[in-house]
Design a protein around this nucleic acid. Structure first.
Lengths: 143, 143
DNA sequence: TCAGGAATGATAATCATTATCATATTGCAA
DNA sequence: TTGCAATATGATAATGATTATCATTCCTGA
């Protein structure tokens, strides 16, 4: 997957420094759908879900998710099977994932906030979100 | 990627509770190669690197990496382009990744240790490793 | 109202990873 | 040590999530 020809031109759909980013119709739909979802969702799952209401292309969903990620409105994580799951940026969601069966259980504590703030200042990065995941083997798989 | 037919039988190449896991030749080579590498590496990069020394199939590398992960000897993380990078489990390696250009810069602080220990006790999981990643936009991309 | 740029959808292409299967290797019992 | 059964390996085909392409539609500002 080293195919990224037109990565840069896809971002400025929105006026540069405007305070309220003004999303496109597709982006807004995708964001709404995600915000009504209690669980992180793959792009394809989202597609299946959304096409029932209003017709929308899969490519548009992928594009919208990318744009929303760059706006700091959506975050992602990758499962062991290689699917990318997206969720609206709200509260942190962290996981404990079994390397064998792949189950993920949520972890609600998050000790990263301060470090994030620190990095924010020290590095030349604007930080939008972080992921924290624990990998191991669950009891059922170890038996 | 929901194809996992023979996931369960691939693990017990090694006697159950034995203290020293006894790796296969392939697994040992892969582990050695990883341990001599300062940076996390993709399976394919590893393949290119290793086949110069001793001939080894790509499939074997993928299998070895999976097995080593389950032994807690190797850890992984997924880049924005969807490649999985592997590294020998030593010290924590965390990253700050630009959502636009994809550069990853290492972060050396890690505030997660205690939480990991806590989870280890509370949950029915044996934790092998964790990943902590920050996503945002680097200065160069923001300009 | 019109032109040009962006967004969208359908679909083909990409490519990291898995599955398959034939062969080689290993460990173990006799 | 021999033979067998189980496992490991390699080459390669298949898979499937994601991207690229391109023709068309939608906006937006002059």
């Amino acid at each position: 997957m080293i195919l990224k020809k037109d990565a840069e031109n896809s971002v400025e759909a929105t006026p540069k420094g405007s305070t309220k980013p003004h999303l496109t119709a597709g982006q807004q739909s995708v964001l709404d759908a995600l915000q009504h979802q209690p669980q992180p969702l793959s792009a394809q799952a989202l597609h299946g879900l959304m096409r029932c209401q209003q017709p929308i292309g899969l490519a548009t969903i992928y594009r919208a998710l990318d744009a929303l990620k760059l706006l700091g409105l959506v975050q992602h994580r990758v499962t062991l099977t290689g699917e990318t799951l997206y969720s609206a940026v709200k509260h942190d969601h962290h996981y404990l994932t079994c390397l064998q069966c792949g189950v993920s259980v949520p972890v609600d504590t998050c000790p990263v906030k301060e470090l994030e703030a620190h990095l924010q200042g020290a590095r030349s990065f604007r930080i939008y979100y972080h992921t924290l995941e624990f990998f191991g083997v669950c009891d059922r798989c170890e038996a």
